[in-house]
Each structure stands twice: as C-alpha cells, then as structure tokens.
C-alpha cells in the first residue's frame, strides 16, 4: 500500500492506494492519522477510491481512526468507497458507523 496526503479547505485528505492487508504498509495509515491528531488537524477524509481491497486489519484501522479522531474532538469521513469495501462494511455492520460519500468534494461539503 502507498499513502499520499493533501490539505484542501483545511481538511486532511488521506489517499491510500493498493491493498490494506496488515504488516508494515498498513501501519503507514495508522501513523499518519495520529500525526494529524498531534498536529491538531482533526478533520480527516480517507479517500478509498484507489484501494483494491482491505481485510479486517484495514477495517480495524478505520475504526481506530474514527475513534481516535472522535475522542480528540475531530471527525472522520470516508470517500469513494469501492463496491468491495462497501460489501465488507455491510457484512460487518460497520456501514452504520461511518459517514461515506461518493466523492471527496461531497465529503468536504459535509464538513462545512
């Protein structure tokens, strides 16, 4: 997995690419998220449009991110959730936890 990040309208947009399956790659997202919180950047969008698939490790990272941000007064939104990831969110009932948007732009609007 590769991870890029950018800031738009004061919101951090994290864009993982590839597969989130555990191991050293997956910790990239976890570490970056906690860097955001430490830097007081607490409005975060994870753009999943370039993620082929993720397993339970990836879901665990999303939950950890959601919880960490919420506990620090921040908020997490998901954008461009692929069909494969959406099906996992439905299977695990996590679809009820996350705010998901079809595009990054829509997720940004939802913060305003």
């Amino acid at each position: 997995m590769k991870l890029s990040d950018r800031v738009q309208d004061g919101i951090i947009i994290l864009q993982p690419k590839g597969k989130i399956m555990g191991g050293p790659d997956a910790s990239l997202l976890h570490t970056k998220l906690h860097e955001c919180i430490e830097n007081d950047q607490k409005k975060v969008i994870i753009d999943l449009g370039q993620v082929d698939w993720m397993n339970s490790t990836g879901l665990g990272i999303l939950i950890s991110s959601y919880t960490s941000l919420r506990n620090s007064g921040g908020e997490l939104k998901l954008a461009q959730v692929t069909d494969k990831i959406q099906s996992l969110l439905i299977i695990t009932k996590l679809v009820s936890v996350f705010d998901s948007f079809d595009s990054v732009e829509e997720a940004i609007k939802a913060f305003k």
Binding site: S56, G60, I63, T92, K93, V97
Partner: peptide, 21 residues
C-alpha cells in the same frame, strides 16, 4: 460475534467472520 453491538467498535476480531462470509 463481531457484529454484536458491544463488539462493533472493537478494532480486532473480524477475520474469521469475514472468511466465513
């Protein structure tokens, strides 16, 4: 069960559930 209300927000424990699904 990872889909029980009390377990929904746990970071781990979904692996085999996903495999079975």
């Amino acid at each position: 069960s990872p889909i029980a209300d009390e377990n929904l927000m746990k970071e781990v424990g979904r692996g085999l559930f996903i495999v079975k699904s």
